[in-house]
Design a protein around this nucleic acid. Structure first.
Lengths: 208, 208
DNA sequence: CAGTTATTCTACCGAACAGTAGTTAAATGC
DNA sequence: GCATTTAACTACTGTTCGGTAGAATAACTG
């Protein structure tokens, strides 16, 4: 296994792909949390040795930050794609929450959200993680406001739609799903809230 | 400082009150989380020495469990008391969420909830904590159903009120407030959701 | 094929941490 | 007062963990 698109300089090339390693690292942190993920476990689960990990990523905290960024890139995209598929916001929001439920309670990965369930609780102790949280939320915030604006412009939402109120409840209901999933609720229980949550968000925006 | 109501047997009496110590322990775990709360810090912040702590509580995990139980006893009572004060559920639920906001984002203690923000994420690693979670949620569950039933009986809620649906949203919105608080939101921001959440819960139960 | 550069591996280090041994101190019961 | 019982304190131990030397290996460059 060789790095797909490395600049291929001098010296011995990496025997692993950085993103593949990060995907495995994500699962370790996601499952065990930051403290319980010792560097030896991380090395074993990635198939690398500890010095290789440190050489590639720096420190345990750096590795965690890299994993969070990779997680955000790869995992959060799918639910927003589901949101954009349907023209009707009621279907779009429902599909968003359905995909979101899979992301936080689906098979093949630990329950909850790496960012909200694992990273958030310890951000006070990890400066580089705290720095991430200072910039991160604004992205999805802006994305959702843009979504509501677009649906207002296309006539799928009334011009009186209260995007700010809807967004606030939209995020709250997502947070609740994450907690429910991390608490061990089965996928079905989380998915079953998708339609209810979509209706509530629209109702909060003024769509009856 | 002497234990208020100890059996006063033979031997040298405790120089501290167990509940006073637990109240200080709660603040340490609540602020730093379980792993970052080392036994030396716990000893310093309680004013005891490490052997005294171990003699009184057993292990670090036992101390954590004792702190959680004390936390539940003392902290969660206030918001339910606020709920019961007003006859009108709209006021009762609003007052509940207002008090709840103080409990999770007020001054004088760390943000978030010791149980949901600190204990829940690590319950898989701590058997005695996991055991707590197997029995804990059912209490507040039953208490809220009893509350709705009582308000239906007194005529403040319609007989058609959907208690199960209302309860589900009630808990979800509380969970969202906890996450918001732990993420660093100021008290005002959390409190500002009290009336909205109360209205949503009633609406979900069928009260327009 | 050397010479250079970067990676990988084995083995290890120092620090931090949960927990404790063993002594001293303070109360009770007789 | 004296023996007994329990708590408190000082000082320590064994382990675990994040991180790293330093040697060995594998590619590229000329």
């Amino acid at each position: 296994m060789v790095d797909k698109d490395a600049p291929r300089g001098r010296g011995r090339p990496r025997s692993f792909d950085t993103d593949d390693v990060l995907d495995k690292v994500i699962n370790v942190f996601w499952e065990l949390g930051y403290d319980a993920s010792d560097t030896e476990t991380l090395a074993r689960r990635t198939g690398l040795t500890k010095p290789s990990l440190y050489n590639a990523f720096g420190s345990k905290e750096d590795l965690f930050v890299a994993a969070i960024q990779r997680y955000k890139q790869t995992r959060s995209r799918s639910s927003f794609e589901a949101l954009m598929q349907a023209d009707d916001p009621r279907h779009g929001l429902r599909d968003y929450y359905l995909q979101f439920a899979d992301n936080i309670a689906g098979a093949g990965h630990p329950p909850g959200c790496l960012i909200m369930s694992i990273a958030l609780p310890i951000r006070n102790r990890l400066p580089k993680v705290a720095a991430l949280f200072d910039t991160m939320p604004q992205e999805s915030h802006a994305r959702m406001i843009a979504y509501f604006d677009a649906r207002i412009a296309s006539g799928h939402l009334p011009v009186t739609f209260d995007s700010a109120a809807a967004l606030s409840l939209f995020q709250d209901l997502g947070a609740a799903m994450i907690m429910q999933a991390r608490a061990g609720a089965p996928l079905d229980a989380v998915r079953s809230k998708a339609q209810r949550n979509a209706n509530l968000v629209l109702s909060e925006g003024g769509v009856r």
